[in-house]
Amino acid sequence: MNKYFKVTLAIVKNNLIREMEYRVNFFVWLFIQILWVSLQIFIVQILFQHTNNILGWTKPEIFLLIGMFRIIRGIFDFFVYANLTYLPEDINSGNLDYTLTKPVSTLYLSSFRKHQYDQIGTFFSGIGFVVYAGPTVNIIVFGILILCGFLAFYSLILMVSTLSFFLTKLRAISSIHDIVNTILRYPVDLLLGNRSGMNLLLLPLTIIATIPAKIVLGKTSPTVLVVEIISVILFFLLAICFWKYALKRYSSASS
């Protein structure tokens, strides 16, 4: 563990030095983040212009869901996103060889090597949304749910990225990230309407933000928390197994 702690510290230091080189960029992106948050608020206001609730979800409840998802996405985009987006390129070019030869876990380095500090805006705007919604929930339970959401989101994008071991020309990871982002801004059961038969099919998406938000809002029984934790752990293990299986099949593209 000590080794990983030292590696993590070195990664944080390197990323901070790199970020300081592009200070203006950081503030420009923070401004863009504010615009996206404003747009999100504007859209929700329009949706609730003619009604107080949409299939049982009120405006503050939707804001809570958006907030929780933004916190989860903020953590994911801050630590992981840039790394998994470049994974297909690393596999294609053979650059993954360099990661494989390092004396730490390949998955750890492939997932957490590069940070995006401008995503801190996503994280804090998420907290803003949650505070506005004002849920009455135990902070530890809330923390566990955020961790579950992050792990589920990470597992999903990791599985998609891992596909690039088999499909050599897959460059569109960012588009999948965008699709998932668009879906998860709203409760998945709201999108499905009465087509609840599809709930099971969309379970990997539901466990990221919809179920955690429902637990916080008291819209489900407390036992669902246990189901959520077990589902996330199973999903995470599935992603790890898929990664290990794919890594065994990797043959370098370089000489």
Binding site: L47, T51, N53, A172, D178, T182, L192, G193
Partner: peptide
């Protein structure tokens, strides 16, 4: 799929809104 995602998702959202208003 990513081009289609936004219109389809917002179609579903607005269908839910119209069912409630």
């Amino acid at each position: 799929l990513s081009y289609a995602a936004q219109p389809v998702i917002y179609l579903l959202v607005w269908l839910a809104v119209s069912a409630s208003s």
